[in-house]
Amino acid sequence: MEGLLVLKQVEAFIQHYHILHDISFEVPKGEVTVLLGRNGAGKTTTLRTIMGLNQVSKGTVSFKGEAIANRTTHQIANKGIGYVPEDQGIFNGLTVGENMRVAMKKEDEETMKRMEWVLELFPDLKKYWKKEGGQLSGGQKQMLAIARAYVNKNDLLLIDEPSKGLAPIIVDKVTESIQQMKEQTTIVLVEQNFMMASKIGNRFYIIDDGVTVHHGKMDELKEDKITMKKYLGIS
């Protein structure tokens, strides 16, 4: 059976620069798939391309069996994909509550239940509900970005480097929250922090210079010192 999200030989440019040369991977439903690779390998561009923020110049992207390559970003999001960008995308001039309200596609009972759940997961958001996004700490911004993506009933969450720039204690909190979310939704995670990625991920794909070069189960990668050294620089 085909995965929830499937990329086949995807190529993409940013202006004149050929960034993705051959990205192929499959995301099974109910699992966390981690995209690993060095800085500049093309991981963020891959997520942006899935979201339609970059154009696919070649190849296919399908979600729940439907081709979504080069659809508009809002159409792709409305298929059931939540996105947490690398810079978190917080609306700095809006309060925490307003950030959540912009994100909510519906205000029905189910959405309110999800909201309650996510606020229990991140009590800081409740505490700072009326504080502007720009006044939050890096960790709180990350929590808000994740909460905002989760508040709608999405089938897939794309989360880009949630540990970036955060203190270790906050990384643990974010890791814990994503672990809880993975019980309820499928996740594609881009992460440089291998400790975090290995705790959360079920399977991995390594991207190197815009090409998916290696993949497998996360547990196997932990034992594969050669691959880790070669592509991730971890020894």
Partner: peptide
Amino acid sequence: MDKEMVQSLGI
């Protein structure tokens, strides 16, 4: 503030 993020939220 951020057009891309608004689109990414399905708007």
